[in-house]
Nucleic acid binder design. Structure first.
Lengths: 274, 274
DNA sequence: GTCGAGAATTATGTCGACATACCTGCATCC
DNA sequence: GGATGCAGGTATGTCGACATAATTCTCGAC
């Protein structure tokens, strides 16, 4: 349980330790909503999938890191069969890669894939927002207004973590309003893949300002049921977010994959010393 | 190995028995391309997944039919573990549903889901075709011209099965030309889900004529690198195909889910009698 | 004759074990 | 000194078995 906090150059608060685990809890909930969609009851498999998935999107497990089934089986005090299944669930969501006869590992997100994902998201989310603007009920709007308020509060309080998760919830509610479960599933999956990078993307102060302004615009488009505007706004925002990420990747802001062997060794020796 | 052929009201040839199994082989290949993407080597799991998947899209296994893991394990002379994993792969592609602690079964495609899928496909495929029109190489065009010729030949020969598979290949080549693997994966998965219905949709003579004309138009748009036109054409075609399916569903042209219990019983007794 | 509760049966989820393929470290060779 | 091949160790894929939940069958009541 690390208590290290990072002082940031800008005025936003450093994430306090308690909020660290709160963010992790949010991550677990989001992962559960997406990967364990039909595993409604808390089964062993879904628990493992949710926790490991959350560790990935919270960058506790880094890109390329090995996910040995025996190691995980020991940690969760179970056999390798449920672990295997949990990893398959995560592979389905693109968080994990499982090559044949090789160790499963955390999927590596290179810029080419990020580009692809954001382009698909831009198009699909645009269409979904367009539908949402048309089909939205008053109940949808109330929920979205609440979330916009939460977003705004987090923005004013300069709380990055709170802003991030409110953002996720806002988009979630928006996709629900479009009433297309298939589209929602795809968007959720794509979101999950890039959730690891969200902190990077929104770490720039100007990006945060733009994001907040963007959400207000979206909300207006929804209030006025202006479907084409909602479409364009969403697409524009996604392509802009992609541009930011392209820049961060170009500057080497994304750590390269860990040499997994090392980490495994460390884990092994740690276990021996216990 | 059934040899029953259906005489159709229109002039298209009844599918001969040999072509039945040829169609099944095509189905296996398409399923392999999509579900066993990274299972390059012929492993046990991918073999089962491909065959069962092909049986589903060829309507050999009907909507809602049970897929008992013990039954499949016996049939493929293996244990239940690989079967389980194969079914998970198929669930990932939406062909199979695996409720907790209940028997896995062939996913049921109701009209609401078909509607969702076609709408997502329309939007996403439109964007992909648009990209393809821009990014296409001469190599892409040659492959597409060949496929258009195959399509045309099948159309002239009134061979429904050949037309269907050439159609699938055409779309496959088109998505490759757009050079977005993420979009391609999603479109492939969506295609797989509705492949069961393709025969229905294209069984109408007028629909086939329109489809053929549509492909020629698409090809022209690609030749002239007219991205917006490609987008609109694809979207229009998909929404039209959806309208046809809506009508077929409304007329009850889609058989309702089989009572799975009965089928299982039959299989069990057949095994005993051997 | 139909419906409902309980027993018997069956299938699933999980487990521990084994064979095989892979990874790692070391010795050898160029 | 760096690359290559081999041997030991280790993780994976698969298996058969068991506990438990779900389904089916049976019997009885209304």
């Amino acid at each position: 349980m690390t208590t290290i906090t990072f002082e940031r150059a800008d005025s936003w608060i450093a994430t306090p330790p308690s909020s660290q685990s709160e963010s992790f809890l949010n991550a677990v909930l989001v992962v559960r909503r997406i990967v364990a969609e039909h595993h409604d009851r808390p089964s062993l498999v879904s628990r493992v999938a949710c926790e490991v998935g959350a560790e990935i999107i919270e960058n506790i497990r880094q890109s390329g890191e090995d996910l040995s089934s025996v190691e995980l089986a020991e940690r969760y005090e179970t056999s390798r069969t449920p672990i295997r299944e949990a990893l398959l669930l995560l592979e389905k969501e693109g968080l994990v890669r499982i090559p044949q006869r090789r160790r499963p590992h955390v999927a590596v997100l290179d810029i080419a894939e990020v580009r692809e994902i954001y382009r698909v998201r831009a198009v699909l989310f645009g269409a979904v927002a367009s539908d949402a603007a048309t089909l939205r009920t008053e109940e949808d709007m109330e929920a979205l207004r609440d979330l916009l308020a939460r977003l705004s509060a987090a923005h004013d309080a300069h709380d990055l973590s709170a802003y991030l998760w409110a953002n996720v919830e806002f988009y979630n509610r928006l996709t629900i309003a479009a009433r297309n479960a298939t589209a929602k599933r795809i968007l959720d999956s794509l979101l999950l893949r890039t959730l690891r990078l969200r902190r990077l993307s929104l770490s720039q102060p100007t990006r945060r300002e733009k994001s907040m302004a963007h959400h207000i615009q979206i909300m207006n488009a929804l209030e006025e049921q202006d479907a084409p505007l909602a479409d364009v706004l969403i697409r524009s925002n996604h392509l802009h977010a992609l541009a930011v990420l392209e820049q961060i990747y170009a500057e080497g802001g994304v750590p390269s994959p860990t040499r997994s062997r090392r980490r495994r060794r460390q884990a092994a020796t740690a276990a021996e010393e216990e």
